[in-house]
Design a protein around this nucleic acid. Structure first.
Length: 509
RNA sequence: GGAGCGUUGGUCAAGGGGUUAAGACACCUCCCUUUCACGGAGGAAUCACGGGUUCGAUUCCCGUACGCUCUACCA
């Protein structure tokens, strides 16, 4: 019988959740759903130095916002709990000891200073980063070089030590990556990675293997940066006797900086003016706030869609996919091998498309909250809906609605007088004066009626419509933008329209 | 330095021995609109280079170049 598909996203709680991270979550999630499998969130908090308070909750919240919630996690629980590596500490040591007994790993007593000294000693122009490997390990203090009595004594005295894997010499290690096909490495090229640290915590290398095995993970997705350490993991699966259960790997292409080269980082976002994190992230130490896609006005649907097609396509011309469509269409053999530069303009385009595509009630509340935060309370639901419908074509981000629609609810504070002043004259002033009078007695307040009245009055005064529309717009809106003026007048109501004309008249004239 | 991985317009990319080498974003022109957008019609722009294999390579093979990742008691 086929094993049930189980995948996992395994972040370290060290800060904001990066675009690349969300995409890894997405691919995991899509794969799991497509195969009716389980999606697990496992927190890899084995590095006490990098641990950041609140980061785990933040990650959970991001997944929730994206609509990619796990089936098992520290929060939801599950049959393989705990899902936090710090709470699984004991089991890693056991396996590490087992490897030592088998001769596949060893105790190393070198101090950080000794390691540094070793690196300094062997560092040359040709070899800028000397490794702790078959050629150097003979010269270090470990259970490989010390006699048994000495080792037991050191251990007995509680001497700080780590457990390192003993990499074999000259073995070809290969495996089949779901995206890249067969990849192989020479075992001599990898160093003797630390498996268990001095503080008793495992490193990533030991922890992923042990946990993926314990949690019955069948497919493992991770960034391409992990490819070079895959042989170490492969060896661990083998030494621990679990090779049969090793998950299939997929090393995902990286998301690159839009300019220049290299992996996209939070810094690039700050530098180039776009978000990199899914949601706002506030560093608890520096109190520095980094803006997220959510707060900048992105729809989760758009965010997910944009990420899905950054490195994947279904071979057709389609670009807009709902989450369910993605679940149906996603496939690993259409995932690109090369990295993709992030393009913020395109990301915004996706958002614009989703604003137009989604029914307004999906995002209305977000806009409303934004308005209320900026001091405009919505009293008339119906008017609010009509306004949103009227301006949504002009909004790329949800936060654009403020600029495009706030004038429907409050009179513009300043108006762009300069736009009409040069062509302003007595006749025009008179026109608006008469218009205001006529509007006062206008019974049925509709865009069509207002337009009709406007036209008639213009004809009477012998002024062209076009000459008058811009001033009218400036009076109502404050600037040269927005929908048709008559629609605006109809929506803001009679009193307000007349009020803005009068006010505009005094400002311009 | 070494290893691994990668390379189709400015960007995301389809295609995969014979094609006018799709499409999208951005850019340019025009139309619509006497506002700003949306929308519509066009335009410019691409197979990194060199060798093979082949009647024929963007596509397959080998090199080269370039880029990225890794080379921590970080993940």
């Amino acid at each position: 019988m086929e094993k049930k598909v189980r995948v996992r996203f395994a972040p370290s709680p060290t800060g904001g959740l990066h675009l690349g991270g969300v995409r890894t979550v997405l691919y995991n999630y899509l794969f799991a759903r497509q195969h009716k499998g389980d999606f697990i969130l496992r927190i890899e908090d084995t590095d006490q130095n990098r641990y950041v308070e609140g980061a785990e909750e933040y990650i959970q919240e991001c997944l929730k916002w994206c609509g990619l919630e796990p089936d098992e996690s520290p929060l939801h629980g599950g049959p393989y709990a705990p899902y936090r590596q710090s709470e699984r500490k004991e089991m890693y040591r056991e396996y590490a000891e087992q490897l030592v007994k088998q001769g596949n790993a060893y105790y190393a007593f070198d101090t950080p200073e000794e390691l540094e000294a070793m690196r300094d000693k062997f560092r040359t122009e040709e070899n800028p980063s000397p490794q702790y490997n078959h050629s150097t390990r003979e010269k270090m203090r470990s259970s490989l070089t010390l006699n048994d009595d000495e080792v037991s004594r050191l251990l007995g005295e509680g001497t700080p030590h780590v457990i390192r894997i003993k990499m074999p010499e000259n073995e070809t290690l290969s495996f089949t990556d779901m995206i890249r096909g067969e990849v192989s490495f020479n075992s001599s090229l990898s160093d003797d990675k630390v498996l268990l640290k001095g503080d008793g915590m495992p490193t990533y290398h030991l922890a992923v293997v042990v946990d993926d095995y314990a949690m019955k993970i069948t497919h493992a997705f991770r960034g391409e940066e992990w490819l070079p350490s895959a042989p170490v993991h492969l060896l661990l699966w083998k030494y621990l006797g679990w090779l049969e259960d090793m998950p299939q790997w997929a090393h995902l292409p990286l998301i690159l900086k839009p300019d220049g080269h290299g992996k996209l980082s939070k810094r690039d976002g700050d530098r180039l003016g776009f978000p990199v994190f899914a949601m706002n992230w506030k560093d608890s130490k520096t109190a520095e706030l980094t803006q997220g896609f959510r707060e900048l006005g992105f729809l989760p649907e758009a965010f997910i869609n944009m990420l899905a097609v950054l490195g994947w396509n279904d071979g057709t011309e389609q670009e807009l996919y709902s989450r369910d469509e993605l679940i149906e269409r996603f496939s690993l053999d259409h995932v690109h091998k090369g990295g993709a530069k992030f393009n913020y303009e395109k990301a915004k385009w996706f958002n614009h498309e989703w604003i137009k595509k989604l029914p307004a009630d999906k995002w209305q509340m977000t806009v409303r909250k934004d308005f209320e935060q900026k001091g405009v309370t919505i009293e008339d639901e119906e008017k609010f809906s009509k306004v949103l419908e009227l301006v949504k074509d002009r909004c790329t981000l949800l936060t654009d609605f403020w600029e495009q629609a706030s004038f429907f609810f409050k009179s513009p504070e300043t108006i762009e007088v300069a736009a009409v002043k040069p062509k302003w004259n007595e006749d025009k002033a008179m026109f608006f004066d008469i218009l205001a009078e006529k509007l006062t007695v206008q019974e049925e307040w509709t865009a069509a009626n207002i337009e009709l009245l406007f036209k008639e009055t213009a004809a009477e005064k012998g002024i062209k419509m076009g000459e008058l529309q811009l001033p009218f717009r400036i009076m109502l809106v404050g600037g040269k933008f927005g929908p048709t003026v008559f629609d605006i007048a109809a929506l803001i109501g009679k009193t307000e329209t007349i009020g803005r004309i009068r006010k505009g008249l005094t400002n311009i004239g």
